[in-house]
Simulated assay, not measured.
Amino acid sequence: MVRIIAGTRKGRVLATPTGGTTRPTADRVRQALFDVLAHAPWGGPPLLEDAHVLDAFAGTGALGLEALSRGAAHAVFFETDRPALAALRANIHACGWEERCHVYPRDVTNPPAARATPATLVFLDPPYHKGLPTKALEILTAKGWITPSAIAVIETGRDEPLPFTAEAESALPCAHTLLAERQHGAARLSIWQLASGAA
């Protein structure tokens, strides 16, 4: 069972699609993540309050909806899997946030030009071991979906190289700053301050 952990929709149970194509971020992992975002020197209330967030590879939308519950103003979701899209839209409706959310049934690595205020906080939970985080961030920045200096939260496999490192297949020369890293079971979370002018 997946729930919103804190904020105005605390305890709201989120719909999840059947099958194994979607991997919702576990409640305990989201709790740990948002604890870091709330208490880190570079985070705190200004990071979420009235923020515009983007949830790439959104699945059920648990990350973006958690951010809205904790004070974000608006969320954009990208998802292509049909069962996941149905669950995502049901969750937005159950929260009463249709006016604060936009869902794009598009491949996040091939988005249209931005139609919303650029996000300052972006969540990426892609399929593991496919080098998708750097590719998605590069194109999202180029198309105006996220600010060049956004905070990016990336979930990868525990045994997968961190994005933007020499060990990562898709590493790009850049000056992105690793702010925090946590491991939870098979998942690794890394939080990055993106560098203006790099993707």
Rank of each mutant, 00 (worst) to 15 (best):
F164G: 09
T80A: 07
E138D: 14
T109D: 00
D35M: 01
G61H: 07
K143F: 05
V13F: 01
W145Y: 05
A38Y: 06
A150F: 00
A171V: 04
P46Y: 07
W192K: 06
A180D: 14
R23Y: 06
L124N: 03
T177V: 15
T21N: 06
A186G: 11
H102E: 15
H129A: 13
N91I: 02
R12L: 15
H184R: 07
E160Y: 00
A72E: 08
G44S: 11
T120A: 11
P24Y: 02
R182G: 10
T120F: 00
G19C: 04
A116K: 08
R82W: 14
G19A: 09
A62C: 05
N110A: 12
A136Y: 11
F78M: 11
W145E: 02
A90L: 02
E181A: 02
R12S: 13
P45C: 02
E66Y: 01
T141Q: 15
T147E: 10
T177I: 14
R100S: 10
Y128V: 10
Q193W: 08
A116C: 12
E98C: 05
E66D: 01
T25Y: 06
V2K: 14
V76W: 14
P148W: 14
N110G: 02
G96N: 03
L37C: 09
A86G: 00
A75H: 13
E66A: 00
A75M: 10
R89D: 08
R106C: 13
H39Q: 01
V36E: 03
T25G: 02
E160P: 07
A62L: 02
A142V: 03
L47D: 09
P161Q: 04
T141L: 12
E181V: 08
I4L: 15
G59T: 08
K135F: 03
A166N: 03
H52W: 14
L63R: 06
P46V: 07
E98N: 08
D107P: 04
L68F: 12
R9V: 01
V122T: 12
D50C: 10
P17L: 12
V103H: 09
L85A: 13
V153S: 04
E99N: 14
A114D: 09
P133C: 11
G11D: 13
K130E: 15
A180I: 08
